[in-house]
Simulated scan of single mutants.
Amino acid sequence: MTEIRYAKPSDANRLLEIYDYYVRNTAITFEYETPSLEEFTARIEHTMKRYPYLVAAVDGRIEGYAYAGVFKDRAAYDWSAETTIYIAHDSRKSGLGRMLYEALEEKLKAMGIQNLYACIAYPDGEDEYLTKNSAEFHEHMGYSKAGIFHKCGYKFGRWYDMIWMEKLIGEHCDHLTGGADRVL
C-alpha cells in the first residue's frame, strides 16, 4: 500500500539516505558532500514553514519525497514555486514520482501558486552520472523546457548543463491576493 503524506522532521534520516545516493553517485544534485542529519532536518523544517514537503511511503517505508520552495525571493514571484523530487534509486519507475508530483501540485494550487519550476541537471551527452530521465519525467508531467545554462555545474571531473522547466497551473488573472502572506 502506498501513502502520500506530509513529511515530519523525524523522517529526515530516511530522506537523507535517499538523497545521499544521489549526492555520492550522480550529477542529479550538484552538491559534493551529503549534508549532516542536523542540516538536512533544518532544511526540511525551513521548507515546511511555507511550502508542502511530501513523502511516499510504501508499506510504511519511505521510498521518495517531493517538496516546493521559493522560486525567487521577491514579492512578485510569490505565485511561483520551485519543485524538487527524489525517489529511492531502487524504486524509480514505479509510479511514485507521478503520485508525489500530482499531490504536490494539488497542494500548491490550493495555496494559489500559479507557476511551477524545476531546475534540472542536464547532460550534453548521457554518461554514468547523469541521464536525461529527470527532464523526460518532468516533460511527461506537463513541464516544458524554459531555458538552459551551458556547462554551469562541475562534478565528477566534467561539466554539466542545467535546464529550467516550467508548468503553468494557475489561471493568471489580474487581481491576485495572498502573495507572501500565504502559509500552509
Rank of each mutant, 00 (worst) to 15 (best):
E3D: 10
R5P: 03
K8V: 05
A12K: 01
A12Y: 02
N13W: 04
L16H: 07
Y19M: 04
Y21P: 02
N25K: 04
N25A: 03
N25Q: 07
N25H: 13
N25C: 06
T26N: 05
I28R: 01
T29I: 02
T29C: 02
F30T: 03
F30I: 03
F30D: 04
P35R: 06
P35S: 09
S36G: 12
E38P: 03
F40D: 04
F40E: 05
E45W: 01
E45R: 10
M48F: 04
Y51A: 02
Y53I: 04
V58N: 14
D59R: 13
G60D: 14
E63Q: 15
G64M: 10
G64F: 07
Y67K: 06
V70H: 04
V70N: 04
K72Y: 02
D73S: 12
R74P: 05
R74L: 07
A75T: 08
Y77K: 06
T84C: 06
A88Y: 01
A88Q: 04
R92D: 08
S94T: 14
G95Y: 11
L96F: 12
L100M: 12
L100Y: 05
A103M: 06
E106K: 15
L108P: 00
K109D: 00
M111G: 02
Q114A: 00
N115Y: 03
L116M: 14
C119F: 04
I120F: 08
Y122C: 15
P123R: 10
D124R: 14
E128V: 13
S134T: 12
E136A: 13
H138A: 14
E139D: 13
E139L: 11
G142M: 07
K145Y: 02
K145I: 08
F149K: 14
K151C: 15
F156K: 13
R158Q: 11
R158E: 08
W159C: 15
D161C: 10
W164E: 11
M165W: 02
K167L: 05
L168I: 08
G170C: 01
D174C: 10
H175S: 13
T177D: 07
D181G: 11
L184M: 08
